[in-house]
Every structure is written in structure tokens, then in C-alpha cells.
Design a protein around this nucleic acid. Structure first.
Length: 381
DNA sequence: TCGGTCTTTCCTGGTT
DNA sequence: TAACCAGGAAAGACCG
């Protein structure tokens, strides 16, 4: 590439954006600190242990800004596009925003590269099906329900232009152009339901929320210059690979071999932490097996992540193990979740007979007698 | 405050 | 060789 290399540009942008390695969404945004885009803090996905970029693992609607940048970078590299002609601010968007962009908007933002990006996006949307946007919206709705203070930034300023819109108010999605220009592969982005994980509930809640049919429109309004690292972030820098991605996998973040066990969470300032403690504990009842079960019993919201092998027997299979793990990680606000860790937690269920072993079959598990809600006719289905 | 529960993380070794 | 499986060990987070 001639004069500048987008990878390095994007890398620097990523570096600035992701210096804070562990954002705690519980902590109310402070005007004194750089603002983290909501979707970034929610959906941050580090490259997996296998160096598979997040955008390859997840539907575009789930992409973080980093994923979007990696995806753009990928196409820049493939087409030898001159990155100097790109506006960095155009690249800085999460998947939700990206999916709302029309063909015209993409071409306008990325020039000749926009055409390629548009078709790539169409392919990815088609690949992952149409229901993912709904999950994203519902996830955000859940978050808003649980942490309404996100909307109430001290000083009366709103970080996010965040509005709840009726699905039929199509203008709510209008960002760059006429509605008819937008891709139609997202199932018209009709929000359906949530899985109710956050509240620890299962189906009834989700059905309720499906009736509500609301979606969030979120427009982050933050300063480009606000990339200072979190004061509580440990000194350990976040290593990057040559391609500009982060390597958060085992050992690579640590200067030396660490001991066993779960590492201590990022410390908060005593004041902030106290506020969190006073506010509310994250509700219990969000168990992994329930999360798995709810993915399985909501096939319309399951973009090929898992499938029943024998529903009667409770036998199921992971189709996209890493993607499920990432989804679980999103739910637990843990961007470093992997299938390896998830599967370890799954194996603990054997002892409690929530799951049963299925010998000789990879990625296949079976619900045990101490699980419930997965059988036909259960859980209000 | 404490103990139980439920993960989460790391690890070694085996299997596919 | 990579991906997955099995399970021990240790520790964090949550909750009653």
C-alpha cells in the first residue's frame, strides 16, 4: 500500500479505543472520564484463542467497533484500497450502526470500497439470518431496564442519543437515506423477544417483551479525543498482534505465568464501587444451562448456533461453539469467554445431573434429569 | 461476616 | 496439529 497502511491506522484507533481492557458497565458513566460507547462496552469481543477475528464469528449486528474496523481492514487489504482516502470517523461504528447503513450511505462513506462492503455485508446478513437484530435490541432493552441510570448522566448531559421507538416508526432507523434503500435481509429488524436471562427468568418474560416490540436507537455522542485509559486499568498494556488485533488469551496479557484460579476483577475506586454495591446485585439465576436451553428453545433467534440432535431426549449440539461462548461472554460481560471455559462449566453440570455425558460425540451434550424447561410443551411454549 | 453455590480461569493429559 | 473432552485446583462473585 502506498503511503499509509489502514491496518496501522485502524490499529491505532483500536488501541486508543480499547486501552481500557475491562469496562464495567455497572459503573455509571462519568463526565470526567472518556466515554465508552455503549455497544462497545457491551459487545466487546476479543479475537478468539484461534485468532479468528470477531467479525467472522458473529453476525454483523453483534459487531463492536473493533470488529467493524477489522472487517473494513480486511477488505482494504484484499482490494489494496488506498486507506488514505478513508475517513477514520466513518470506520468507527458498531455493527448495529453498520447494518442500518444503506448502499448509498456506504458508498458515500467509503467510496469505491463501499460497494464491496455493501455486498459483503449483505452476504453476512444472509448467512446469519434475519433475527439477530432483534436479539441485540432486546439485549439493549434489558440493559436499559436494569440500568436506567445509563440515561441519566450527571450534569444533565446525555451521552447517548438513545430513544425507544416503535418498530413501525420506520423513520427511527433513517440514518442515511430513504427507507427503501436499506437492505431487507434483517427481517426488517423487527424485534421479537428477549430471552430474559438478565432477569433470571425464562420464557414468560421473553414473551412479554415480544409484545412490547420496542427497539432502541442508540447514537453514541462521544469525543474522539477521549481515549485516556481507565485509571483503574492495570498497568499491563494490551498486547497487539502485527495485524492490530488484541490477544487477550491465556498468558498473553500477563508478563509472567499466573497462578490458577480466577483473576481478580479490575478494582474500582472505592466510591464508585460502593455505589455499585448499594445499587443492586446482578441478579442470580442466569445459569449457563438455562442460557443454553433458551437458545435452543428459541430457534427463531438462534442463528445456527446450536441445534437439537434429539429434542425428545434432550440431546443438543453446538454448531458454532465459539460464537455461543462469545454470546455467553456478552451476557456475563466477559469479553474473554471461550468455548473451552464454557465447556468446563458445562462439565460441572454432569455431577449435578443437569447435563449428561454423551460419549464419543464432539460438541454434543444432553440435558439431565435436574434440568427443566427444554422439553416440548414446557416453559409455556 | 461467613459459608455455599456457581461460575471462571488455568492446567495437564487424553481423544478425535 | 487443531479442536475438543475430562476433570483437578483455585479463586471471584453473588447470595442467603
Amino acid at each position: 500500500m502506498a503511503s499509509c497502511d489502514l491496518s496501522s491506522v485502524l490499529t491505532d484507533a483500536n488501541w486508543a479505543m480499547y486501552q481500557t481492557t475491562d469496562i464495567d458497565p455497572l459503573q455509571p458513566p462519568s463526565l470526567n472520564e472518556p466515554l465508552q460507547p455503549l455497544t462497545t462496552s457491551l459487545f466487546t469481543l476479543m479475537p478468539s484463542a484461534h485468532e479468528q477475528p470477531g467479525w467472522r464469528l458473529l453476525p454483523p449486528q453483534y459487531w463492536t467497533k473493533q470488529n467493524t474496523m477489522e472487517w473494513i481492514s480486511h477488505h482494504v487489504d484484499e482490494t489494496h484500497f488506498d486507506a488514505c482516502t478513508l475517513n477514520m470517523s466513518s470506520c468507527s461504528m458498531d455493527g448495529v450502526t453498520l447494518c442500518q447503513m444503506s448502499h448509498q450511505a456506504l458508498v458515500s462513506a467509503f467510496g469505491s470500497l463501499g460497494e464491496r462492503l455493501f455486498h459483503s455485508l449483505l452476504e453476512l446478513k444472509a448467512k446469519y439470518g434475519a433475527s439477530d437484530m432483534t436479539m441485540t435490541c432486546d439485549f439493549l432493552n434489558n440493559l436499559l431496564d436494569e440500568y436506567p441510570e445509563i440515561l441519566n448522566v450527571s450534569g444533565g448531559e446525555s451521552i447517548y442519543d438513545l430513544s425507544i421507538v416503535n418498530e413501525h416508526q420506520e423513520s427511527a432507523y433513517d440514518i442515511d437515506g430513504p427507507v427503501q434503500d436499506r437492505p431487507k435481509t434483517m427481517g426488517d429488524m423487527t424485534p421479537v423477544s428477549d430471552n430474559g436471562y438478565e432477569s433470571g427468568s425464562t420464557l414468560p418474560d421473553s414473551l412479554d417483551s415480544s409484545n412490547a416490540r420496542i427497539c432502541l436507537k442508540i447514537t453514541p455522542v462521544y469525543s474522539d479525543s477521549g481515549s485516556d485509559s481507565d485509571p483503574d486499568t492495570p498497568d499491563t498494556p494490551c498486547p497487539r498482534t502485527a495485524s492490530g488485533t488484541f490477544r487477550a488469551e491465556r498468558g498473553e496479557l500477563k508478563p509472567s505465568k499466573r497462578g490458577r484460579g480466577r483473576p481478580r476483577k479490575q478494582s474500582h475506586s472505592s466510591e464508585d464501587y460502593g455505589q455499585i454495591k448499594r445499587r443492586k446485585h446482578a441478579p442470580r439465576g442466569t445459569h449457563l444451562w438455562e442460557f443454553i436451553r433458551d437458545i435452543l428453545i428459541h430457534p427463531e433467534q438462534n442463528p445456527g448456533l446450536m441445534k437439537w440432535e434429539d429434542h425428545q431426549q434432550g440431546v443438543f449440539k453446538f454448531l458454532k461453539s465459539e460464537a455461543v461462548a462469545q454470546l455467553w461472554g456478552q451476557k456475563k460481560r466477559n469479553s474473554s469467554m471461550t468455548y473451552e471455559k464454557l465447556s468446563r462449566a458445562m462439565r460441572y453440570y454432569y455431577k449435578r445431573e443437569i447435563l449428561e455425558r454423551v460419549d464419543g460425540r464432539r460438541l454434543v451434550y444432553k440435558f439431565g434429569k435436574n434440568s427443566s424447561g427444554w422439553q416440548h410443551g414446557e416453559a409455556g411454549l
